[in-house]
Amino acid sequence: MMFKIKLVRLSVFIIYCACLFTGQVHAETEAGITSGILKFAAYDNFPPYSYQAANGKAEGIDVDIARALAEKLGLKANIRLVFADESLEDDLRVYVWKGHHVTGPPADVMLHIPYDENLMKREDKISFIAPYFEDQVVVAADPEQLGSNPQITAFFSNKIGVERVTMADGYLLGAYRGQIRNNVLHYHSIPEAIQALLKKDVTAVMGMRTEIESALDDSKNKYQIGLMQMPGIAKASWDQGLAVKASNQALSKSLQDAMTSLINDGTIKNIFNKYNASYHIPAAKINYPQE
């Protein structure tokens, strides 16, 4: 079966697919892509990063970044919006290195992948590359309800909204021996939680900065958005980067170069700002592995 063939280079796979399905074979570029098309996977239903716009097309920060990367490499971007499985490991297997008998072969590169040393140790089939921003767990607080500069202990007696099964959710359920637990209201997404904040169903929302800022949109200035002292939180910020199959080193190197260039010339920052979100440069020093 197709999935069991051990591929040395992704390019071999591309040629195989192209011959089989379209009959087209393009000359191999420096990035190791032969079809002229760079296939991206990005999470569906994930504003402001990647989602299907009203016109049916993929849209968002990650989608714009994908297009910018492809352009830099002289390739056309094919962006597939994908379903987030139970864990990142599943997503990497299905969308990056192996594929799935229902969803088909993997993409060349996946966006919005945490750049984390522990992941790198565990996932030897993946190259984690090109961190492009730092994601932060922040609190957006309503000063009309909480006054200025509220502390986390404010939620011993005030309602706070979170997206379910997130760091914010897990932290607040356990923090201070459960004293906040009964004031945590659960929503299916950050936009839903922000709607509750605007309606004053909650006094604050805890979650990822970019999603919160973008969901607040024009109301952003009415809320205090920032890092809060959160004693005992397991992780309050991490970088996001790209995932490429480990065997595809040529593509990894090209994408790293392209991303550096897009960060340095302000393209990435502009994309974030376009979606009403502030930009935070990755904490990791971007090192390229030596050939």
Binding site: Y43, E86, L88, T166, M167
Partner: peptide, 9 residues
């Protein structure tokens, strides 16, 4: 643990 790009417990 990560899910949809975000850490959780």
């Amino acid at each position: 643990t990560y899910k949809k790009g975000a850490a959780y417990m």
